[in-house]
Design a protein around this nucleic acid. Structure first.
Lengths: 338, 338
DNA sequence: CCTGGCACTCATTAGCCACGAGTGCCAGAA
DNA sequence: TTCTGGCACTCGTGGCTAATGAGTGCCAGG
């Protein structure tokens, strides 16, 4: 078990290393922090911390840097979430208030997060599975061609072309539109399949294939578009990886371009509270020297999507966590209002 | 005036420099290219080329590298566009054929371009100004709240919430929807304002404010959404700037994150043929050591948007131009089919 | 106008050395 | 026990010098 002071030493190491980006030695530590003990004592503590795997020497007889395990302990036990200043809060609010539609909200959020944390920001579009239907519209484009438009409560719009097996009359279309909406509006996407199951039966025999086709496309849209979209920003901040530059940044950029990777990354986020994944805790190889700080957000109690940042393991965790949490809250508010 | 052989020397310098990424000397040149003259002669030619500003020495008595002006001459006079191989063409086709909707087409195009050229790819969404209206839909969400959905011939969908001054009946809405569509469907966005100008007059006096509000929102959408969207990909390829890495890559990444910059960049593209902007020809400072190769694309004769790549001035121009042109053609085909 | 020869330039690399931040260990004090 | 001061040792960093070699400009002669 680690004594109180040893934890204090670890905290000091993390803080100094994050600040200076250089391995930190025992002497420097005692000078910058009031630990009340001599460098020699700190050295002993460091030896213990190293044995336990919390810190590490880049090479023999250099200063120490935290390991992933060290950061983990720091995040879990030694540091809280740093709340934003009033000025920052105001900045967030005024920046997000100007958004005109969902795309804009997401775009602004990405910029905001990137600027605030000086890291790469990742924002997932509000997910369809957990949203509800606001409206389904059917438009006749040609005799046997219908456009299906799906509008969600988060303001997202999806459209699909439907090629019908036979020409479809305006009245049938209006009928279908009305019945469809009366059944599904306000319901969750996941409930839609069972709600529309018997709908074809209530139509004339001739129209049933058409109705079935339209419904099939609707269900397909629900499934397909559950592949969620993600917006990325602030990649220029990666250049602050001053160290072994090309080597580090390359795989990170590659990973960030893979929507799949990002989705998986965000998928591992807990439903409540800020989630931090440090270094090798991230499954993806290219991200093994980065940390992900993410959190769910939503218009109500429940999270409909996630947002967060990706940065070097050597990051200011309390500040980053504070910024991510705050932004998520404001975005949630904005979504609830619209 | 430059003699034939001197141009040949310039071409050789560009080709070698692009290949090796190192300043090229007179001896190496005569070895790799059958110029039929001795290194000494080449040196004299080089001296002339340097005096004319086509090439440059990084420092006294090193090899030569092309200047922006040198690349310009190379692109304009010395090199054509290299057509793709049959295999590459097939790859493009099969890759793009799988796309399901407009977003997907753009996303796939970006990936394709990035992979093909090994550079940063930029694709502009088909522009609204040059598109035509396929359908306008009005949905009643609440008594005094209407959702306006605009569908373009390129498959793009835009929606806006409209808060009306007074409750609006279903019949009025249906009436407006019908008249609106009969007037604007098939017409260009730029023609819409004059087409709907007198529309409010044909409604009951009480409904005119509502109609006017809806129309205002429609026109606003046309203008606002003319701010065009852009998709970016392949930023990981920037790491192939091996040279003065952080210094070079930073401003480039920053520039690429600014939609405005990208739009301005693509805005300068000629309407026909592949446009190449080299180094300082790009207005933006951060892009002064990159070149942009871009071209318009569209479903018909006319370009509705642009796509291209951004890479180091030291790039394989013929190959890049070939790839960009080929991709643009296929995307145009895909759009025309849908 | 082209060529071979020659002296010169200068970035790069390797080798060397002094410096100093940092360590581990140990004996003695608290 | 726990902490401290002292001390020898490690090793990356930075400055210096010398050797290397690719590349140049210039010139005299074909």
């Amino acid at each position: 078990m680690l004594s109180e002071r040893r934890l204090e030493v670890l905290r000091a190491i993390v803080q100094d290393y994050v600040g200076t980006e250089e391995p930190v030695g025992s002497k420097a530590l005692t000078e910058r922090h009031r630990l009340g003990v001599s460098p020699a004592t700190v050295r002993n503590d460091m030896a213990v911390l190293e044995e336990e795997g919390f810190i590490q020497q880049p090479y023999t007889s250099a200063g120490r840097i935290p390991t992933d395990k060290g950061y983990r302990l720091f995040v879990d036990k030694l540091a809280g979430v740093k709340p934003l200043t009033a000025a920052e809060r105001r900045a967030i609010q005024s920046f997000l208030d100007g958004a005109v539609d969902l795309d804009d909200v997401v775009a602004r959020t990405v910029r905001l997060l990137a600027q605030l944390t000086r890291q790469v920001a990742v924002v997932q579009y509000p997910s369809l599975t957990r949203s509800t239907v606001r409206h389904v519209e059917l438009l006749s484009l040609a005799p046997a061609r219908v456009m299906l438009v799906l509008i969600t409560d988060t303001g997202r719009v999806e459209q699909r072309l439907v090629d019908c097996p036979s020409p479809v009359g305006e009245t049938v279309l209006a009928d279908l539109r009305a019945r469809l909406n009366s059944r599904v509006v306000g319901h969750r996407f996941s409930d839609v399949p069972s709600l529309v199951q018997d709908l074809p039966d209530s139509f004339e025999h001739d129209d049933r294939p058409t109705v079935a086709t339209v419904l099939a496309t609707l269900l397909e849209t629900l499934v397909e578009e559950t592949e969620e979209r993600i917006m990325l920003g602030g990649t220029a901040n990666l250049t602050r990886f001053n160290h072994d530059f090309p080597l580090t940044i390359r795989p990170v950029l590659e990973a960030l371009e893979e929507q799949v990777v990002l989705l998986k990354l965000l998928g591992e986020v807990k439903d409540s509270g800020v989630t931090v994944r440090i270094g090798h805790e991230n499954a993806h190889e290219g991200l093994s020297s980065t940390s992900v700080v993410a959190v769910g957000y939503g218009s109500g109690d429940e999270a409909v999507a996630r947002l967060g940042v990706v940065g070097p393991t050597r990051m200011d965790y309390p500040g980053t966590m504070g910024a991510v949490r705050a932004v998520a809250r404001y975005v949630g508010q904005i979504l609830a209002e619209s």
